[in-house]
Structures are given as structure tokens and as C-alpha cells.
Write a protein that binds this DNA or RNA. Structure first.
Lengths: 221, 221
DNA sequence: CATCGGCTCCCCCGTGCGGGGGAGGCCGAT
DNA sequence: ATCGGCCTCCCCCGCACGGGGGAGCCGATG
């Protein structure tokens, strides 16, 4: 019997694309679609798909919360494949920690999308398969500029605390506000900020935030 | 005879989605695809499509340059429909100024995508049709948070100069660098920056840049 | 004509920011 | 037991940033 798939993405176009790619396979069947995370749970209960292809960034309920909700409330839950645009998207990592079984780059070739669905359906969790890394590498220079930012942030090797600070910087918080949020002294925050700036090669916090956006470390929407 | 369409987008998934939506129409035919702007010109010459559905943000050659190149080098050029994610994407306006005939939101419903293609094919230029404005308005609250940023920037009514300054701020330039770039005094830049901060409700340039990203005024990638 | 908005430039002023140091405590690895 | 990485906090210091004013020039609008 075929692998059944539920598509969850707020853009109809992406759903149509996934449907077109997957329906072309005789052994894969798209059994339903949802436009936001809130609609996922009832649909999963009703349709009992083998795989849910879930966008991370969605209105109402994002992919992370939706993943948690499905795994928590549904018994014999489906495999969850997180769909994303950026390979460094921190939300993806959160989703994987939340229990997702794999992730899928939107710019992957159709064959690789199909492959990913089949793999997770078989119970393989493809967290960081070589193929995806290679894909990211292959994507090479033709990337309109933010590849550099991704490189920088990938090589930056930020510590957990520094990443946390950068995240708050990217939300517009001042050093004092970050200090209050993290319950540490402002001097401590300044240390972390300086470390972040040094590692990212940024001159000031604005440039650091730009790098965060350009790299996909944080993303609009 | 059917309307012939050439799809140009760097994401295979989006191409597949557009193809699925358009091919479902008996009077529309997708005659080709390209993954970047550089491949567009030879394909247009070879395939002579009625409409080119072109992503703005692409590797190698973006939609703006590709639009210019097509209109400049091809006689009896096709209608160009710019495809974008954000309604406030400044690149879209640039593309429209470059000669594109209309624009298309990726989150539009299939029926509206089809409608847009038919319209431009008939020679109607749908720069800011009521339907699109309505669509943006209808999209309403289910928008993961950056709707607020869009609202702010839409209501901000930045002057041309202020928008230019915000653009440079979002590229990480200091006031002095912006002044040099625009060939004005730093005091002038400070005036513009202050105006931008006030209009955006931002406390500092970092918050302004965040709003710029969240609203789609500038976008990563 | 007068008015208004946009662009330009100027002043003063306080402070948050970032650089350059140093230092202690904790912990895992060697 | 020692080393190194991380987190924490401290000092001094210079400056770019941003707020709050004001002012002249211009073109469009009335």
C-alpha cells in the first residue's frame, strides 16, 4: 500500500508543488492539505497519514508547536518531515528537538523530495544526511549574497549563550534589556555581544542582526 | 491558441506549484522553466512565450535585471509577471519600474494566479489591482507576526530619501558611510534617520532594520 | 501669492555602545 | 592535576548615536 502524506504549508503554491512532485510517484499518495498548524491535529486524526510534510513558519501555529501537539496528542503519530528554506534555520533545529523525523529543503530537487518522504516513511530519520549537506554545498555561488552570511555564521561557532544573545539582539533588545531577560549583569551581556560581533565580523549590533537575517539564523515571517 | 508561459524561479517546488496550477487550465500551457535569470533570455528567444512568470530573488541574475535584459534584447517581448512573497517588497517596485507588467503574490489562491496570467496575457497590466490589495487585506491576522511590521511600514509613509536611508541602514552602513554614499552631510543623514525611527516607532537603527526585514521592505536571499 | 512638505545643514547634549583590558569560578577533557 | 572553554563580572575610555531644537531652499499645491 502506498505511503500517505499530509501537506502543511501556508502557501498554496508550495502545497501544489509538493503535491505535483509526490503524486507523480505511484507509491506515494497525498491524502490532505492544511494551511496552518492549527488544522493539523484533527486532520492527522482523521486521515492517519504516514508522513506529514510540515512548514516551520506558519500563521496561527508554527511547525514546531504543531509537531509537539501532534506527537503529544496522537497515538501512533505520523512521521514528521519539516520543510524549510534555509539549512541554518534555527527553527528547524527546534522542530527536530521537538520530535520531527527529518527536514527538507524547499530548493531540493524533486527526486530528493520524493526520496526524503520514502526514507522517513520507512522509519529512517534523516536529520543531517550527507545528501542535504552536499546539496547545500552544491548550491554553490549562485545564491544572491546571503551564502556569505551563512558561511560566516556557520563558521562563527557561537556558544549557546552567544546565540541566545544574538537572538535577542535580533529582536531589537538593548544590552540592558537582554541583561534583564537573561538575569545577568549588563557587563556580561556586553561581553557576549562583543564576542558575537567579533565572531561574525560585524562592526556593530545592526550588522550582526543583518547577518542573522541574511544567514537564516532568524527569519522574517 | 493557448497562452504560453515560461516559469522562472530558483526553487523547483515553486515551479512545480505554478506548473500544476497553470497546466490545470485548458487554455494555458507551460512551455518551459528556468532556475535563474541568466537562462531566461535564450529561453525567451527560443520558446517565445506569451508570459514569463519571474521570481524577483534569484541567483546569478535577479528578476529585475532579467526583466530589463529581456525587454532590452528581445523584440516583441513577452509580458512579465513578477512573482514575490511580500506585497511590500521594494524589489517588486523596482521590477515594475524596469518594465514588468504585473505582480503576483506567492500566497495567492490558484484561481487568482490563473487570473493574473490571463490578464497580463490579454495586455492588461495589473500593477496594483484591487484584487491584490484586497488579498493582502484579507490575509488578515493569520500571519505569524510580521503583519504588524508591514502595517507599520505601510503607514510609515517614508519619503523617497528616508526609504533610501533605511535601505542603506539595512545594509549595515553607519551614518557617516550613508552620508558619503549619498553625498550629503552627516547631519542630514541624522535627520533622515531620526525621521525613519520616528515613523517606524523604532528606538534605534537596529530596531528599524528589524522592521525593514520583517515587513519585507528588504529581504534576505 | 502664501503655504506646506521634503531635503539640506547646524547647534547642544546625554548616553548607550563597543574596544581593550583583566579576573574569578565552573566544568569537562586530557 | 592541569588545561582550556565558557560564563560571569569589573574597570576605563572614546565616540557614534539619537533627541530636541532651529533654519534656509525649493517645488508643488492651494
Amino acid at each position: 500500500m502506498p505511503v500517505t502524506v499530509l501537506l502543511v504549508d501556508d502557501e498554496p503554491l508550495v502545497r501544489a508543488g509538493l503535491r505535483a512532485v509526490l503524486e507523480a510517484q505511484p507509491d506515494i499518495e497525498v491524502v490532505g492539505e492544511a494551511a496552518d498548524g492549527a488544522a493539523v491535529i484533527p486532520l492527522v486524526r482523521q486521515l492517519r497519514p504516514d508522513v506529514v510534510a510540515m512548514d516551520v513558519r506558519m500563521p496561527l501555529l508554527d511547525g514546531i508547536e504543531a509537531t509537539r501537539a501532534v506527537l503529544r496528542t496522537v497515538d501512533q503519530p505520523p512521521k514528521i518531515l519539516v520543510v524549510t528554506t534555509f539549512e541554518n534555520d534555527e527553527y528547524v533545529y527546534e522542530a527536530l528537538r521537538a520530535g520531527a523525523d527529518g527536514f527538507l529543503l524547499k530548493r531540493a530537487r524533486p527526486a530528493e523530495i520524493v526520496h526524503a518522504v520514502r526514507l522517513v516513511a520507512e522509519g529512517e530519520s534523516l536529520l543531517f544526511p550527507a545528501s542535504v549537506r552536499r546539496l547545500a554545498a552544491e548550491y554553490g555561488d549562485g545564491d544572491g549574497g546571503n551564502r556569505a552570511a551563512r558561511e560566516v555564521l556557520a563558521r562563527a561557532r557561537l556558544t549557546e549563550r552567544e546565540a541566545e544573545v544574538l537572538r535577542l539582539m535580533a529582536r531589537g533588545l538593548s544590552n540592558a534589556e537582554i541583561a534583564a531577560r537573561l538575569v545577568v549583569g549588563t557587563e556580561t551581556v556586553k561581553s557576549h555581544v562583543s564576542a558575537v560581533l567579533a565572531k561574525l565580523g560585524a562592526r556593530d549590533r545592526t550588522q550582526a542582526v543583518i547577518t542573522a537575517y541574511e544567514s537564516g539564523f532568524v527569519a522574517p515571517g
